[in-house]
Amino acid sequence: MKNLFDFFIRHSAWVVATIYVVLSLLMLIKDNPYQQSIYLTSANAVSSTVYGGISLVTDYFHLKGINDELQQRNALLEMQLVDLRAQLADAKMQLPDTTLNSNLQHFDFVVAHVISNSIAQTNNYITINRGAADGIKAEMGVVDHTGVVGIVNVVGKHSARIISLLNPYMKLSCKLKNSEYFGSMVWDTGDPRYATLEELPKHLHYAVGDTVVTSGYSTVFPEGIIVGTIEGRARNLSDSFVSLKVKLSTNFSQLSTVRVITNDMSEELHLLQESDAQGQGGSANRKEEGAK
């Protein structure tokens, strides 16, 4: 026994090194963003305070670019507003009793400020300065004025971490704006300006520059939010599907203010799914009773 202790003391450095390596490996292997504890992410209180301080300074450097983008966006929206008013007036003339209904009316926004953001990693995350106290919950969609940004993942009291679109864990259901063909958008690491739209049918017709928007097949993002434009064909992994290279409309290196979609439809849908499941369970019970 004494020899054994002597052995461990003599080689304690190897024991310590092995323990640290195993601990790190465990953390590395369990790197699943959906299961991480809040203390091990940038959404914890200390990190978010530090990031908040740093972003107070660094945000000033992006102001000019953001200002230009906002002005362009503003001009575009004004044009659309004029156009839509004209269309609305036309529609009212033709059908005076119809009220316009839109999917977008089910969605509200919380405006948040980005306090940390990475684009150079393999798995990129964004931290914002709004949390559970502001009504943010996990799995809410996040957009900015140019397009889709990501999905909320870990929520602290006054901060939250978002899985960026630039993260291979994030798969976004998208479609081409002018057709009903849909596929899933993934980022295959590397250039933060481009992503790949996969699993599109082979007979798809497309043109370079076509707009890619969210499909609305989940409750996270409403249908029709801009994701990017088609740049060309991407390297294909399967013969039965087509993959397209998409230029992302969101400029991830200059994220500053984002909007979190606080979706009030998701609870209703969950309730509906639950009652559906109960209904099925009930009918199964009845069948069993009948058999007896």
């Binding site: 310590v16 465990l26 203390y39 091990l40 990190s47 990693q121």
Partner: peptide, 28 residues
């Protein structure tokens, strides 16, 4: 002693991991 150096290095990596969302990578 190597143990002290190992511990400081591990903690350093862990601190960077936590703030930069790379669990275990820099610690290893």
């Amino acid at each position: 002693h190597l143990n002290v150096a190992l511990t400081i290095a591990f903690l350093m990596g862990l601190a960077v991991d936590i703030t930069c969302n790379t669990p275990g990578l820099n610690a290893l």
